[in-house]
Simulated scan of single mutants.
Amino acid sequence: MISLGDWAFGRLDAVEVWRNLTDARVNYSTDEVRRPTWNIDVHRTALPEERPGPPEPAGPWEQACRLVRDYEFSPPEIVRALYDPAAPLLGRDMLLEARFHGMRFYCGVRVTEVVDETRAGTDRVWGWAYETLEGHLERGKATYEVVKRQDTGEVLFVVSCHSQGAPTLDRITFLGWRLFGRRTQLRFYRRCAERLRLFVEAALRGEHPLPGAPSTVGRLVCAPSDARTHRRDALALHRVAPE
Results as ranks from 00 to 15, higher is better:
69 R>S: 08
219 R>P: 14
140 G>M: 04
234 A>Q: 14
169 L>Q: 01
67 L>I: 03
172 I>M: 07
59 G>K: 01
7 W>K: 05
79 V>H: 03
83 Y>R: 06
201 E>F: 06
12 L>A: 07
105 F>C: 04
21 L>S: 14
30 T>D: 15
23 D>N: 15
205 R>H: 06
166 A>M: 04
224 P>G: 00
174 F>P: 01
8 A>H: 05
170 D>Q: 09
113 E>S: 01
34 R>G: 07
56 E>A: 15
127 G>T: 05
203 A>M: 02
50 E>G: 04
119 R>Y: 00
94 M>G: 00
6 D>V: 14
206 G>A: 02
7 W>A: 13
47 L>D: 03
205 R>L: 09
169 L>W: 00
174 F>W: 09
137 L>F: 12
222 C>F: 07
83 Y>K: 04
39 N>E: 10
174 F>S: 15
72 E>A: 11
226 D>V: 10
67 L>Y: 02
187 R>F: 02
16 E>I: 00
9 F>K: 14
30 T>F: 02
58 A>C: 12
80 R>L: 10
52 P>C: 12
123 D>I: 04
41 D>A: 10
113 E>K: 08
5 G>L: 02
179 L>V: 13
5 G>Y: 10
144 Y>I: 00
36 P>R: 06
52 P>G: 06
204 L>Y: 03
121 G>K: 01
44 R>H: 03
229 T>R: 15
234 A>P: 08
103 M>V: 14
150 Q>W: 02
56 E>P: 05
27 N>H: 05
154 E>H: 08
61 W>E: 03
223 A>H: 01
44 R>M: 01
129 A>M: 03
207 E>K: 13
108 G>F: 09
91 G>H: 12
29 S>K: 06
240 V>G: 07
4 L>F: 00
82 L>G: 06
9 F>H: 15
97 E>D: 09
169 L>Y: 00
204 L>C: 03
120 A>T: 05
31 D>Q: 13
113 E>H: 02
49 E>G: 12
219 R>N: 15
197 R>D: 11
78 I>P: 04
30 T>A: 13
123 D>H: 13
121 G>H: 05
226 D>S: 06
141 K>R: 15
71 Y>A: 14
5 G>F: 07
151 D>S: 11
134 E>V: 04
24 A>H: 11
221 V>N: 01
171 R>T: 13
8 A>F: 04
117 E>Y: 03
76 P>C: 09
65 C>M: 10
93 D>F: 06
182 R>K: 14
173 T>G: 10
191 R>F: 09
85 P>A: 11
38 W>A: 10
172 I>A: 14
118 T>I: 13
84 D>T: 06
